[in-house]
C-alpha cells in the first residue's frame, strides 16, 4: 500500500507492506537508524518518536497508521546544526553510558518538557515510566531533563 507522511519536515511517500511497523519503515526504508528497537514487547521506549507533536512508540504502530501524519525522529530535533537543548543537557550531565536508550529518552523528554506545566523531579520520574535505561540508574537523565526544561523555558 502507499503511504505518505512528513518526516523531519520533508514529505515522504513510499509503497510499503501493510504489516510494516513505523519503526521499521524509518530504519529500513529511510535509513533513519537513530530510532532504536530495544525490545519486542513494546516496553522499552527506545523507539519513541513524535507523531503530530506527541511521543509515541514507533514499534507499536503500523507505518500505515502514520499515513498523513507529521513525524519527528531524533535526527530531526537539532536546529540550525546546533544540538537541541535536551541533547546538550544529556551531554553536559553525562545522562548516557551505552547510549542505546538515548534517542527514545530524548524524544520522551522533549514531550515531557513541552507538555507539562510546573515540571518537577517527581513528574519527570513518573513520566519516564515508558523508557528503560539499563546503564545509568536514571539519576543523570533526570538531572539533564530538569536542566533542559529550565533552559527551554528561559
Amino acid at each position: 500500500m502507499k503511504v505518505s507522511m512528513r518526516i523531519n519536515g520533508e514529505q515522504v511517500s513510499a509503497d510499503i507492506d501493510e504489516t510494516q511497523l513505523l519503526a521499521h519503515f524509518l530504519r529500513d526504508n529511510l535509513n533513519l537508524t537513530g530510532t532504536h528497537i530495544g525490545c519486542d514487547t513494546s516496553q522499552c521506549g527506545a523507539c519513541v518518536v513524535h507523531l503530530n507533536g506527541r511521543a509515541v512508540k514507533s514499534c507499536t504502530m503500523l507505518a500505515a497508521q502514520a499515513d498523513g501524519a507529521d513525524v519527528t525522529t531524533i535526527e530531526g530535533v537539532q536546529q540550525n546544526d546546533e544540538l537541541h537543548p535536551v541533547q546538550k543537557a544529556f551531554r553536559q550531565h553525562h545522562a548516557l553510558q551505552c547510549g542505546f536508550c538515548t534517542p527514545g529518552m530524548i524524544m520522551a523528554a522533549i514531550d515531557i518538557i513541552e507538555n507539562t506545566d510546573d515540571l518537577d523531579e517527581h513528574d519527570v520520574r513518573e513520566q519516564l515510566e515508558g523508557n528503560i535505561c539499563r546503564c545509568t540508574g536514571y539519576q543523570n537523565i533526570i538531572a539533564a531533563i530538569l536542566s533542559a526544561a529550565k533552559e527551554m523555558r528561559g
Partner: peptide
C-alpha cells in the same frame, strides 16, 4: 494507564 507514550495513542 500504561505509560505516557501508550496514553498518547
Amino acid at each position: 494507564i500504561g505509560d505516557p507514550h501508550v496514553r498518547n495513542v
